[in-house]
């Protein structure tokens, strides 16, 4: 790389970067094509024709709606739990130095650093040992555990920027802890929590590996999709669901990005 060209990328680099980006995006775009195909038995390409009828058929499928409902419920409750636990952890870790601080941050990261199957089977065998029947709540238990880290990561960056003197000033002026939290801390960390919450929601909404171990008979949307992947029965409906899932998960990601851009750490860079 000669210095006189250093602010221009070489053609090779440009091509490699473009090829890499295409590799990341074309497969997802293909899903959009398949949602409109008239072919319903095979994955034939190019599609013999295009139709909108699968959207209507999917709309009238109760099993899809039930799975969607369960997924939204699980993701919402897990997100709330993760928000509380993640914020508490972030506040503690960023405000003070104490023995075991490293251990705490390791413990938060562990559920996501270890392969999901380990979290899944560990929880499953623990539920079995404790005779806890599988239900929506066992799914939530698992999801909340690995969602904490997303909230934590977002909140801890913001807490570090929040100057301690602001809190001191508030307390000196006679505010109670709750008032300080409500009027001083909260406005400062709100957007990072919102971003963390959105990412936690997206993470839970999409999770399948841990869920296969912690769910009983209930099917979340990913479980429904997995079933279709292993034993395809409703290819056109699966195509439509896949497309809708892609569109729906884009929203929280874009939201989280706009909420935290310009900060020192943009949300979502670590899943």
């Amino acid at each position: 790389m000669r210095s006189d060209q250093s602010n221009r990328a070489s053609t090779g680099l440009k091509l490699a970067a473009i090829a890499g980006l295409l590799f990341m995006h074309l497969p997802i775009l293909l899903i959009f094509v398949y949602a409109f195909t008239t072919e319903d038995k095979t994955y034939q390409f190019p599609p013999p024709g295009y139709t909108l009828k699968w959207f209507a058929i999917t709309w009238n499928r109760p099993d899809v709606w039930e799975a969607l409902q369960l997924s939204v419920k699980v993701a919402s409750i897990s997100t709330v739990i993760a928000l509380v636990l993640g914020t508490l952890c972030a506040a503690a870790v960023s405000r003070s130095k104490f023995f075991g601080r490293e251990a705490i941050s390791l413990m938060v990261i562990l559920p996501i650093a270890l392969p999901g199957i380990i979290t899944g089977i560990a929880l499953r065998s623990a539920f079995n040992l404790a005779d806890i029947p599988f239900s929506m709540w066992t799914i939530i238990l698992g999801h909340a555990t690995f969602c904490v880290v997303v909230v934590y990561n977002n909140a801890v960056a913001r807490f570090r920027r929040l100057s301690g003197s602001l809190i001191e000033a508030s307390m000196d002026l006679g505010a109670t802890g709750i008032q300080t939290f409500r009027y001083v801390v909260m406005p400062n960390i709100a957007t990072s929590l919102l971003a963390g919450g959105m990412l936690a929601f997206a993470l839970s909404f999409d999770e399948v590996i841990v869920t296969t171990f912690t769910a009983g008979q209930q099917a979340t949307l990913p479980i429904w999709m997995l079933e279709e992947l292993v034993r395809p029965r409703q290819r056109p409906v699966t195509n439509v669901v896949a497309m809708v899932v892609v569109l729906v998960t884009f929203l929280p990601i874009l939201g989280a990005y706009y909420l935290t851009r310009g900060g020192d750490q943009i949300a979502g860079s670590g899943k």
Partner: peptide, 15 residues
């Protein structure tokens, strides 16, 4: 990079 990172794992496998 973010959008493929966060789009559904199963949908990606399905693709």
């Amino acid at each position: 990079v973010m959008l493929p990172l966060w789009s559904s794992y199963l949908v990606k496998v399905y693709a």
